[in-house]
Design a protein around this nucleic acid. Structure first.
Lengths: 148, 148
DNA sequence: CTCGCCTAGTTGCATAATACAACTTGAAAC
DNA sequence: GTTTCAAGTTGTATTATGCAACTAGGCGAG
């Protein structure tokens, strides 16, 4: 395999993965869509952020994020509080219930991944993980170059 | 990083990728959605297959595939012909126009990927590609264990 | 052969995610 | 102060999707 072929394969396989993820995300966890799940995950990682940050990170329209956030708040999984300095800004944070649900979904997804990755040598797992990180961080997270 | 951490990272990063792909797929190529693109791609790879095969491969409902296929046929990108042996079966194949469009979209996606992967050592590209292939084929393509 | 069952595909219906545009409100610049 | 910009919300339309009910063709048991 040469570099061109490798790029081609990466393109195709990432697309297949994305396609399957999209098709099946809702079925594993009807209580939490892929979108909701990733939004909660980002809130956990970041320790709280603005709706605009979420929109930029995932290349979503702010209206979409607004509605998702509203739904998550209705479900008592996140809370909003007004930023003390700038009253336009709502800082979003996980509630205890949100953290718990997120942990549950993460666990069950992890089981599925573990099963999928069973039998891989540890060295390969670690290299695969580092490649994915490198790939995802190689584009800026503001949506400009992350549109793949 | 130990194996558990690696699995965790792979899970998170694959999810981020899937999320971004979903969010932005339609914007790069308004003329061909991610779904349509992958369906055409599969037809090219397989050299023609049934709607049911597409549904199984991507874990989609047959009704969804039926409608997508109808749209692709309306756009003259694919053709159906009845299987000679089994008249329930429609074999789907790319038209010349379909092949051409697919090639164009593939090219432009490839450019974006190349840019994204610029600077990666060839060795890493090849290993990344092989990991993705291994990951995607580790589940059967019939949707039973591919629901990630 | 015929009846019951299976498979491939279509269509009706409801839902969810999404984008875009118009709007509100608050901050900041001048 | 007025204009300009940024954060969010809401109205509207579109699209992808799943499920259920349906049609039509093949297959096996009797």
């Amino acid at each position: 395999m040469d570099a061109d072929e490798a790029v081609e394969t990466i393109q195709r396989e990432m697309t297949v993965f994305a396609r399957r993820a999209r098709a099946s995300a809702g079925r594993m966890h009807p209580e939490l869509s892929l979108v909701s799940y990733t939004l909660l995950g980002h809130l956990e990682e970041s320790g709280g952020c603005r709706a605009t940050d979420l929109a930029a990170h995932y290349a979503l329209d702010k209206s979409t994020v607004s509605r998702q956030v509203a739904a998550l708040e209705r479900a008592r999984l996140i809370e909003r509080r007004l930023d003390a300095d700038d009253h336009r800004v709502q800082v979003l944070q996980l509630t205890d219930a949100g953290s718990e649900i997120l942990a549950q979904v993460t666990d069950s997804r992890r089981s599925a991944f573990r099963e999928r990755l069973a039998g891989w040598p540890e060295e390969d797992l670690e290299r695969f993980a580092s490649y994915l990180v490198r790939y995802n961080t190689s584009g800026r997270a503001d949506g400009v170059t992350s549109r793949l």
